[in-house]
Write a protein that binds this DNA or RNA. Structure first.
Length: 471
RNA sequence: GGUCCCAUCGUCUAGCGGUCUAGGACGGCAGGUUCUCAUCCUGUAAACACCGGUUCGAGUCCGGUUGGGAUCACCA
């Protein structure tokens, strides 16, 4: 049985795209092996808790197609899946470690610890707890019994070598002399990540811990905790972090990182985002670039994950999304565009949008590209990218010619205009550019004849008549 | 700075000792289709960080150098 999990912490407003990337692998590995993918909320840091963050994260995971088989939302056999609701569990296990001499109480104040670290750094030593309390456990225990504020620290064994077995990186060795006596239980009764993650992964029978590379340096601590309990280790897989173009860890300072931003602000399809993310550190065995989540689950192998950290490239993401847009049904695309703008409080006329779809399907890469290209369908241009005053005569001729068109269809409009070009002996390219700008305001637009058909005869004639004056 | 991870075109990657004069994709450039743009099609430039080993043979294995990154909290 394979069981994987992701453990988002609601300290951000939404799921980080990097988390989606690792969630995707966890999801795929579990499902490929007919196992379960667990979503567990790690909300043990009360000071950084973002209100509404958890709900948003869970919603985003659902929306993008990676819901947990077990989660705070849907429950499961190992509930609760929210760490703040499991405090008694962690306390029990922390006490067990103290009892077995694998951990100890510490009553040092934050002030003393800060001072201690400063002194160590001044001496160019690595900051590490000096074990003052470990050496006075009898006294410290009395204080604890008397109700003094305290934490529980892990007792790191002296001078041992801890070997972390990482499935994709091999054996990684750490010396315990470099490892600090990690706090396991905080003075507010909440566990730290390190205790909670080990206890929960064990109790929830997680078999594969697939997580970000950032956790690699603290993994030896986790191994020591597992060993202290006498528990079996899961398989560790430390996946490379997504990077900014400058190669630093993908961060909101330098890049948009919230998943909803890509979906709601950019109008990227969830499927396209997943597809793009799937290509970060993994490649389809047949070299395919576009594939469904189902196909990914079928083909994904944890052993094929690359260890090099990839740069997140929004340009390729856009290309990927363009692929999805071009292959989507017109009616679906219409609905997507309508909903996309509705969320931004812009209500577009459904019939009009529907008519424009065939014209823009190959021209936009994401939903946010719709209005910049199509606004002229809904509103008269306010400014013109070329000067139309000097084209007054041309436009006058055009108006008279189009007035004669009875059957207002793209092909007929086109023939009519071609005829005029011939009659006037003007250059076709320049002529159509003038018409284009008169209709749309812009030098770049959807196909002209079709656009004019959609605009309607009356509106086109009005625009021809009015454009030079507005200028 | 200590510890640890990583290293193929600008970017994502294929490559798991010979079939690599290194393949694909995005992006770039050039051309074709076209009343603009886009789509589509064709072509093109562009990489094994460096130095040593191992081997008949190294992009592929080992060591070092350099470079990049992560991490060193009562945050996750």
């Amino acid at each position: 049985m394979v069981r994987t999990r992701i453990a988002p912490s609601p300290t951000g407003q939404d799921v980080h795209v990097g988390s989606v990337a690792t969630a995707l692998m966890n999801f795929a590995w579990a499902h490929r092996n007919k196992g379960q993918f667990v979503v567990r909320i790690e909300d043990t840091d009360r000071s950084r808790l973002v209100p509404g963050g958890e709900k948003k994260m869970l919603d985003t995971l659902d929306r993008i197609g990676l819901p947990g088989d077990e989660s705070p939302k849907v429950g499961g056999p190992y509930a609760p899946y929210r760490q703040s609701e499991r405090l008694a569990v962690y306390k029990k296990y922390a006490e067990e470690l103290v009892k077995n001499n694998k951990a100890y109480y510490c009553v040092c104040t934050p002030e003393r610890l800060t001072k201690m670290r400063e002194e160590q750094q001044a001496k160019k030593q690595l900051p590490k707890y000096d074990r003052l309390c470990l050496n006075n456990q009898d006294e410290v225990k009395k204080k604890v019994l008397a109700g003094e504020k305290h934490v529980v620290r892990l007792k790191i064994p002296d001078n041992e070598e801890i070997v972390v077995n990482d499935l994709i990186r091999g054996q990684i060795k750490f010396g315990t002399k470099d490892i600090d006596d990690q706090v396991l239980l905080k003075s507010d009764g909440y566990p730290t990540y390190h205790l909670a993650v080990v206890v929960d992964d064990h109790l929830m029978k997680i078999t594969h811990v697939i997580r970000g590379e950032e956790w690699l340096p603290s993994t030896p601590k986790h191994v020591i905790i597992y060993q202290s309990f006498g528990w079996e280790l899961p398989v560790f897989v430390h996946v490379s972090l997504l990077r900014n173009p400058d190669k630093s860890k993908l961060s909101k300072r330098k890049n948009p990182v919230w998943t909803s931003w890509y979906l709601d602000e950019q109008g990227i399809y969830p499927e396209a985002l997943l597809n793009y993310l799937a290509l970060m550190g993994w490649s389809h065995p047949e070299g395919k670039e576009k594939f469904s989540l189902d196909e990914y689950v079928e083909k994904f192998d944890i052993n094929d994950i690359q260890t090099t950290a990839p740069v997140f490239d929004p340009v390729k993401l856009d290309w990927m999304n363009g692929l999805y847009i071009r292959e989507s049904q017109n009616s679906n695309l219409k609905t997507q565009i309508l909903e996309f703008y509705k969320k931004r409080k812009i209500n577009l006329d459904e019939n009009l949008v529907e008519k424009t779809i065939p014209l823009i399907k190959e021209r936009i890469k994401k939903l946010s590209g719709y209005l910049p290209l199509c606004e002229f369908f809904f509103n008269k241009p306010e400014k013109y990218e070329i000067d139309l005053k000097s084209k007054k005569d041309l436009l006058k001729n055009l108006g008279e010619e189009l007035e004669k068109v009875k059957d207002w269809k793209a092909s007929v409009i086109g023939e009519s205009m071609q005829g005029l070009v011939k009659k006037l002996g003007v250059k076709a390219g320049e002529f159509f550019m003038v018409v284009r700008v008169a209709m749309t305001g812009k030098k770049i637009s959807p196909p002209l004849n079709e656009s004019m058909e959609i605009l309607g005869k009356e509106e086109c004639l009005k625009r021809i008549d009015q454009s030079p004056r507005i200028q």
